[in-house]
């Protein structure tokens, strides 16, 4: 019998927080840089009058920017050969590569420029599966984003394929 790709101590983390919550202010220039990098020039990201005419309090950030804003600054020494950062969280698997498998989002309330957002990630699921290229582990990292009024503005479930 082959060894599971999931060590028992990792399996025990399902449902648990992956790190301490991260709190960040949504910065106008960073949000607009992101919009330009996507090529999404919706005026609600750039023109205050267009944003308020569309029913927002002020400029908003592109929908998925909220998942990138909390990424912490880290030193280059923490980069692995593949360019990814040495994992800071506690998911340890007996695998070489993790591919981005997709994402699921609930957008509950708008994220405005200037909002203070707290992101809390937890390990929502971990399943070992047999694929055409051999066994793999499907990881689901669920993050809840809450604003300064303690309103949940969004939830994301990021799917990782580890083999």
């Amino acid at each position: 019998m082959t060894e599971s790709l999931i060590p028992p101590e990792t399996l025990a983390l399902v449902g648990e927080p992956l790190s301490d919550p991260v709190t960040v202010v949504i910065d106008q220039r960073e949000a607009q840089r992101y919009a330009h990098a996507v090529g999404d020039l919706n005026p609600i990201y750039f023109d205050e009058a267009a944003a308020t005419a569309a029913g927002y309090r002020t400029l908003v950030a592109p929908p998925t920017f909220v998942s990138h804003a909390p990424v912490p600054p880290r030193p280059m020494e923490a980069l692995r050969e593949d360019g990814l950062y040495l994992t800071a969280d506690r998911i340890k698997l007996r695998v070489d590569r993790i591919m981005f498998g997709g994402e699921e989002w609930d957008f509950v309330e708008p994220v405005h420029v200037g909002d203070t957002i707290t992101a809390q990630a937890r390990l929502a699921a971990l399943d070992e599966k047999d694929g055409s290229k051999g066994p793999f582990v499907r990881t689901v990292r669920e993050t809840t984003y809450t604003n300064q009024d303690e309103v949940v503005v969004a939830r994301s479930r990021q799917i990782g394929i580890a083999r």
Binding site: V38, D40, N42, T64, S67
Partner: peptide, 10 residues
């Protein structure tokens, strides 16, 4: 992958 996702939201 997330850029393609951001395109989808756009």
């Amino acid at each position: 992958g997330p850029l393609q996702g951001a395109w989808l939201t756009q």
